[in-house]
Design a protein around this nucleic acid. Structure first.
Length: 550
DNA sequence: ATAGTATGTAACC
DNA sequence: TGGTTACCCTACTA
């Protein structure tokens, strides 16, 4: 592979050919040189173009015609989609499990039927409290696992309901068809998914990311919401009136170092408190009766770090769980909230997107971390030094996506079913789709991968209905309601009330922002309608062969 | 069709 | 410690 050198005096240009790929005949050479000189071509190595570091010396300008990997910039391989299958850069650690030496396609956590399980050694370190807790709860947990019902077909789709990506979803505590949705812009939607044209959007409650919503436990018309605008609002769903409970930025924008954003939020019913946490590591409390601040803010995570999740234990009102960007989830006793007084600190390798007590007994904890692992702690009074189980699962952080959160099924009496969206795609009949995974967290087994050929976007926001076999998903700007296939009505009959378009992203200045200009959205919908009722949109991981292009 | 971009975190100095 | 920058499977819009 002799470099071809051009006879120039200053600076020298060296063309390196790609010896690995097809041998080009001399006829193509002129053309190839021109192509190679397009600096900025993604697959062209730019690293050697230019002068030396100080900009003085005359080093040769070397333009490589070798195809280089866009990830590691080395020749000999290329990362990216080959059709609907993504080929990883072999020089990087596995994109799924983050271990070196293999890529996603050959990752042992991908091929295994028990989806990426690392069972931790069983420990029996029962403290007296543990025995008491176990005995109180054991009777409520059936020994035979129920058959899981997986909502696996899109029954209602609310297309482009939001103009920005969806950040949170919340089912109504008593009205079965009502769901709330929040988006990155701060818009707050209330809709009936059996009558999707009947909807309400509140655009004035928050001015930026709506991070969390909770219904009032005492009045299911009232909803609390926490936003990156630094406020908590309380909205009456019947009147649409909203009041602000807290504003952490009363002085307005003074720059990013002082702007406070509210992320994690939960309600402690027994104490009548709204708990909310900010991006500087602090917990704030508001008394729901007086709507006034209760006590001082408490530093519960590393100073200056975002606290993204708060969860009150469903059984023991004094227990609070928090998680955040300092790589910890922490358990607190509400009676003693002080710096450093946490009962347990659950260490993770990366940012913890969510930490939830199990919904019925409150005795387990499930966390979702950006190290691509779902962690389970089986007993909150057991050994908290390490999780009882780690499940490798692709839910990487991406600045353009709402962070993934694994969610419990609130109606599963065995507290072992979880739902979580998947980042990496699967080649599904030639289309790259990102399924929504149902995982048995007691075994780590992947129970179902739910997908629809029309939903090609990643679905990081998922919630299971508290009473019905329904899954709600937020994928980019779209909302989807899934039901078990056998419970879905024939698709054609009711198509008209299943698709809603509104809230198109506003145009750039100088152009009209017009909701009637919805051609892209309508194309999406008609595609969806046409393909309805054609084929089953899901598969059981254990029974069907995977369409992986190995 | 394709280039541009919004954007959060962590690694780096 | 703070400021700068790289960044791998995005989802759009112009």
């Amino acid at each position: 592979m002799a470099p071809v050198t051009r006879p120039t005096t200053f600076p020298k240009v060296v063309i390196q050919r790609d010896s690995d790929s097809e041998q080009s005949s001399s006829d193509d050479e002129e053309e190839e040189e021109e192509n190679g000189l397009v600096v900025g071509n993604d697959n062209t190595d730019k690293s050697q173009v230019g002068f030396d570091a100080k900009g003085k010396g005359k080093i040769p300008i070397t333009i490589s015609l070798k195809k280089v990997c866009k990830v590691c910039k080395k020749p000999g391989h290329e990362a990216g989609f080959k059709g609907a299958t993504y080929i990883d850069c072999p020089m990087k650690p596995c994109f799924l499990c983050k271990m070196p030496g293999h890529t996603t396609l050959t990752c042992p956590h991908r091929v295994t039927t028990e989806h990426g399980v690392i069972p931790a050694p069983r420990r029996k370190t029962c403290k007296p409290l543990d025995y008491v807790f176990e005995r109180q709860l054991r009777s409520a947990i059936p020994s035979i696992k129920p058959k899981y019902v997986i909502p696996n077909q899109v029954n209602c789709a609310v297309i482009r309901y939001h103009s920005r990506r969806i950040t949170c979803l919340e089912f109504h505590p008593t009205k079965n068809n009502i769901i709330l949705s929040g988006d990155k812009k701060g818009q707050f939607g209330v809709w009936d998914f059996e009558k999707v044209h009947e909807r309400v959007v509140y655009g004035n409650i928050h001015s930026c990311i709506l991070n969390n919503m909770r219904f009032s436990p005492t009045n299911d018309c009232m909803v609390y919401s926490a936003s990156s605008d630094g406020t908590i609002s309380c909205t009456d769903l019947e009147t649409g009136l909203s009041s602000s409970l807290m504003n952490l930025n009363p002085g307005g924008w003074q720059g990013p170092s002082t702007w406070k954003m509210l992320y994690g939020m939960d309600i402690n019913c027994e104490k009548g408190l709204v708990l909310v946490a900010d991006n500087f590591g602090f917990l704030h409390m508001v008394d729901t009766r007086s709507n006034h601040k209760s006590g001082d803010a408490v530093l519960i995570h590393k100073k200056g770090s975002k606290v993204v999740g708060l969860h009150c234990n469903p059984i023991q009102p004094d227990l609070l769980l928090s998680c955040g960007n300092d790589h910890f989830a922490r358990i607190w006793d509400m009676r003693r909230m002080e710096v450093g007084s946490s009962l347990y600190d659950l260490k993770h390798q990366r940012v913890v997107n969510s930490a939830y007590f199990s919904p019925l007994s409150g005795n387990k904890i499930m966390t979702t971390s950006q190290d691509n692992r779902i962690r389970i702690w089986d007993s909150i009074f057991g050994n908290m030094d390490s999780p009882s189980r780690e499940i490798v699962h692709s839910h990487d952080f991406n600045r353009h996506l709402t962070p993934f959160k694994a969610e419990w099924d609130p109606k599963d009496p065995s507290e072992s079913l979880a739902v979580v969206g998947r980042y990496i795609s699967e080649n599904y009949n030639g289309t790259a789709l990102h399924p929504i995974d149902f995982i048995d967290i007691s075994t780590g087994q992947l129970l179902a991968e739910v997908m629809d050929p029309n939903i090609t976007t990643i679905t990081p926001v998922n919630k299971l209905h508290p009473r019905d076999d329904i899954l709600a998903s937020g994928s980019s700007r779209s909302l989807f309601i899934w039901k078990p296939k056998e419970k879905c009505e024939p698709a054609e009959e009711k198509d008209e009330r299943k698709f809603v378009v509104c809230g198109r992203a506003e145009k750039k200045r100088g152009k009209k922002g017009n909701d009637s200009d919805e051609s892209d959205d309508e194309a999406f919908i008609s595609k969806f309608k046409k393909s309805k009722s054609k084929k089953s949109n899901w598969k059981l991981s254990s029974s069907s062969t995977k369409d992986k292009n190995h």
